[in-house]
């Protein structure tokens, strides 16, 4: 074991693989960002070249900022993502706590039912969801999107969090009960901080599909006031002509907020792991 740990060749090989993987993973992002700073001609002439003095062009960003209300789109995406994330984590954690903590009839069945959503894509129900939203007058509202995404994110959240909550020391919860803490205090003050790494994981897994989703905004909330950033970027993609500068610029801009959210959660994740002080 210690041989392997000290071997330089092995360490180089491991890092080589990791670096290769990083390059592959980052390549599309790199191309998108680099080309968003180039003129249209330069994008097609040399897609992989870095923007030079003559190819550097901010026309994409200018178009994006001029055309459409991009700030509003950003705000919509943010509202929907953060809102859904909040509800997924809150309700997911609460359901997980109930499933893992209380003995009641049908507990196992309920857990299975709540986790079933992982296997059934929510998009199969699009027509029914649309009918429901029309009936309740929620079409073209951000509320509709938040509701749908909350439903979409809950199964995975419940599944992961209930597994983690089962591992939280029962003695700790019982000590809280003897000290007179309410079940809510036990949940919020004792259990949630201990499953924070799991919460961060769930947050990241929930966040990214919601931010990137095109399907539900297109169907449920395509109005100008409720467009999300992914939907907003589509105006530059036409059937015959695509404004690549603008598309790339819009996509580059769209990466920033999700990146910030990710960094926040991943820091939580690391802190959660290092602060492990259960025993």
């Amino acid at each position: 074991m210690s041989q392997a740990r000290h071997s330089i060749t092995r360490s180089i090989a491991a890092h080589g693989v990791l670096i290769l993987w990083t390059v592959i993973a980052l390549f599309p992002v790199f191309v998108t960002v680099v080309n968003s700073f180039k003129s249209r001609k330069a994008i097609f002439a040399e897609p992989l070249a870095l923007p030079g003095p003559e190819s550097f062009d901010l026309v994409g960003y200018a178009t994006v900022l001029k055309q459409g209300d991009f700030f509003q789109y950003f705000l919509n995406s943010m509202t929907v993502t953060v809102g859904s994330l909040f509800f997924v984590l809150l309700f997911g954690a609460m359901a997980a706590f109930a499933l893992s903590e209380y003995r009641f009839r049908g507990n196992g069945l309920m857990g299975l039912y709540l986790a079933l959503g992982i296997m059934i894509p929510i998009r199969l129900g699009t027509v029914a969801i649309l009918q429901m939203m029309v009936a309740s007058g929620l079409v073209n509202t951000l509320t509709a999107l938040v509701l749908v995404y909350t439903a979409q994110g809950l199964p995975l959240a419940v599944f992961i969090l209930s597994e983690f909550m089962r591992n939280v020391s029962a003695d700790l919860k019982n000590a809280g009960r003897i000290d007179g803490l309410s079940e809510y205090t036990i949940f919020f003050r004792l259990v949630l901080p201990l499953v924070r790494p799991a919460m961060a994981t769930v947050a990241v897994f929930t966040l990214i599909p919601i931010w990137n989703d095109l399907w539900f905004p297109l169907i449920l909330a395509p109005s100008e006031a409720t467009k999300t950033i992914t939907l907003g970027s589509q105006v530059f993609i036409g059937q015959f002509v695509t404004n690549w500068n603008a598309v790339l610029a819009a996509l580059s801009l769209a990466i920033v907020p999700v990146l910030i959210l990710y960094l926040i959660f991943s820091r939580q994740l690391i802190r959660g792991i290092t602060a492990g002080a259960v025993k």
Partner: peptide, 12 residues
């Protein structure tokens, strides 16, 4: 009052 095998102190 109860004393537990795993101490069960509040970590925070």
């Amino acid at each position: 009052a109860m004393v537990f095998q795993s101490y069960a102190l509040y970590p925070h």
